[in-house]
Simulated assay, not measured.
Amino acid sequence: MSPRAAAWLIAAASFASVVAALVAQHGFGMQPCPWCILQRIVFLLVGLVALLAALGGGLLRRLLGLLIVPLALAGAAAALYQHFVAAKSTSCDLTFADRLIRGLRLDSLLPAVFEVRGSCADAAVDLFGVPFEFWSLALFVLLAAGAVVLVRGAPR
């Protein structure tokens, strides 16, 4: 796969994951916690960076690929934190995710996408027997792996 195609695929997968989360929220009543919203933010950031990489060339694409890797790993860390720590808590109030969302004012700018509507314990939902945040984790790992294609460049 060419680096440009990989960038387009990373962008599409990132944006599609947010669309899927919004369908789950608004269509099926799965209310997001702060850590869910934080993962949405990271998916959108990865998608935007990948979009720039798809539109850019050689060195720029590689540099943007280098940026995607830590973003995707941060998203993976958020998914793991959500599952192993936050979901065991009755309140996500004043956690890093909650403070970041409030600090950026995303919840008031675009509440349909970024407003926290559930607690971390309530957001612990399975999809096909797998915790929702593990689906997110898997996608973040795949996005990081895809970013390696951007960093390595076209095969010679």
Results as ranks from 00 to 15, higher is better:
residue 86 A to E: 08
residue 60 L to H: 04
residue 85 V to A: 15
residue 150 L to W: 06
residue 137 L to D: 02
residue 48 L to C: 01
residue 41 I to E: 02
residue 43 F to E: 02
residue 6 A to L: 10
residue 95 T to Y: 14
residue 145 A to S: 12
residue 89 S to Q: 15
residue 123 A to F: 02
residue 78 A to Y: 03
residue 118 G to R: 09
residue 65 G to V: 08
residue 134 F to H: 01
residue 89 S to F: 12
residue 18 V to W: 08
residue 134 F to P: 06
residue 63 L to D: 03
residue 59 L to S: 13
residue 124 A to C: 11
residue 46 V to W: 05
residue 2 S to P: 11
residue 126 D to S: 12
residue 106 L to F: 07
residue 119 S to E: 01
residue 118 G to C: 12
residue 121 A to D: 15
residue 90 T to F: 07
residue 34 P to Y: 14
residue 110 L to F: 05
residue 7 A to L: 02
residue 101 I to V: 15
residue 151 V to P: 01
residue 36 C to I: 06
residue 129 G to D: 00
residue 74 A to S: 15
residue 17 S to I: 03
residue 101 I to N: 08
residue 52 L to P: 02
residue 105 R to A: 10
residue 21 A to L: 12
residue 74 A to H: 09
residue 42 V to S: 00
residue 115 E to Y: 06
residue 133 E to V: 15
residue 34 P to A: 09
residue 104 L to F: 07
residue 123 A to H: 10
residue 48 L to R: 07
residue 90 T to N: 13
residue 34 P to K: 10
residue 25 Q to Y: 13
residue 119 S to H: 08
residue 90 T to L: 14
residue 22 L to M: 13
residue 76 A to I: 02
residue 124 A to W: 05
residue 122 D to G: 08
residue 75 G to V: 03
residue 10 I to F: 03
residue 68 I to H: 01
residue 116 V to M: 01
residue 85 V to I: 15
residue 41 I to C: 04
residue 117 R to Y: 09
residue 99 R to Y: 13
residue 35 W to P: 03
residue 86 A to D: 07
residue 131 P to F: 05
residue 27 G to E: 11
residue 115 E to S: 15
residue 56 G to C: 12
residue 81 Y to I: 13
residue 150 L to A: 03
residue 3 P to G: 06
residue 84 F to E: 15
